[in-house]
Design a protein around this nucleic acid. Structure first.
Lengths: 209, 209
DNA sequence: GCACGGAACTGAACGCTGTCAAGATGATCT
DNA sequence: AGATCATCTTGACAGCGTTCAGTTCCGTGC
């Protein structure tokens, strides 16, 4: 199912190759995984020559960054939908599960997203969408507990939540967790269980003092 | 500063090329980063032909896995040292900081470690060292709070701690956190602050109920 | 209605990569 | 000494990212 008209005699100028390349990239990514996501493969998928993408992206890296931004936009959307679905008191909890489940549903995309994010120092603009998704988390946490936390505590709590979610997203598919998941009755219970235990240590520390 | 004898007339048989390749890989990794870590570059660094590594590793991937296992061994060592240094009540806290600081001190190695770990489904043996490091965390948490937690809670707490540490390790160098770090008076304060806030949300949730 | 400037695209080329088959080398065992 | 066998080299292959000279076509000014 290609996205561009096939009947026409393949016009020399593509119309919107930039968008077509992004969709081709996501198609290749989903079908063959990150290791097969070469510039040439994307160009092939879009039906253009290997050099064509260079008129729309400086680099392979710049293409990947665009894919990553698209991914962060989707992630934000998934989290927003989860918030809408959840009852007031479950909003904060459901956003974490939604985050991890998005990563599980789009493992290849998620990988590209963070490969780009880690290299992001050199590319100041590439985190716009990531920022926007982060803000969504911040709003949710503020709504749940904003009046109980200082500005600094709020920020640190958001960062801690995001880090925990990211860590879980990257590791939740490790084979070693399989038996535990079965024991707990499924993926979602496992995810919720881990997220619920983030505070256990600090609570114990508090009690001990 | 090559690691193998230079004076000798370059013996055809290398002696211990496997180890030499691992050291060469870590050297290349430190000097030029993960993107430059090609099989050929490693062979070049070790002073052998591009095909030589294939007598010691099935794949490029298998070489990277070996590097990753070495990295997990070093990580375990770093955490163990931190535990030894810390007072009894700070052991659990210091292990998290040690984890993240190891990742910051060896960013390239840490990246290879988790790139391998994520692909690990196909390679059953490659997590031995990671397992061993995980066990160290489990022992520490058990020592701190074992009697207060069920077996399941203990396991979930360990996983949650590891996930949070991993997430922080991957994200703590994001440029957006720079101002906050300065405000808090340095890297270590920031790390400790984030780790200390992991439990904030669950504590608030508890209070609200 | 038409030339022309410039953007979009192609095709061929460069050096790099991972991998493999065939041959050279030298340590080891009998 | 001779045979064996793992080890290492040489040379080759396809595929990669990237560049560059040329081709095609769209939009604009006349």
């Amino acid at each position: 199912m290609t996205t561009v008209a096939l009947a026409e005699p393949k016009p020399y100028h593509h119309g919107d190759l930039r968008r077509a390349l992004l969709m081709a990239a996501e198609a290749v990514l989903e079908r063959e995984g990150p290791s097969a996501l070469s510039l040439r493969a994307v160009a092939r998928e879009a039906g253009v020559s290997p050099a064509a993408p260079y008129h729309h992206f400086k680099d392979k890296n710049e293409l990947l960054n665009a894919v990553a931004m698209e991914g962060f936009a989707q992630l934000k959307q998934a989290m927003a939908a989860a918030i809408d679905r959840a009852s007031a008191e479950e909003k904060r909890s459901s956003i974490g599960v939604a985050y991890v489940e998005f990563a599980q549903a789009n493992p290849h995309l998620y990988r590209v997203m963070y490969d780009c994010a880690r290299n992001g120092e050199a590319l100041p603009e590439n985190t716009d969408e990531a920022d926007s998704a982060y803000e969504l988390v911040k709003e949710t946490i503020t709504a749940a507990a904003g009046d109980q936390l200082s500005e600094l505590d709020l920020e640190l709590t958001c960062i801690a939540s995001w880090c925990a979610a990211h860590g879980l997203a990257e590791m939740c598919n490790f084979a070693k967790f399989k038996p535990l998941k079965d024991l707990m009755g499924g993926e979602r219970a496992f995810l919720q269980g881990v997220l619920d235990h983030l505070g256990v240590m600090s609570r114990i520390k508090t009690e001990l003092r």
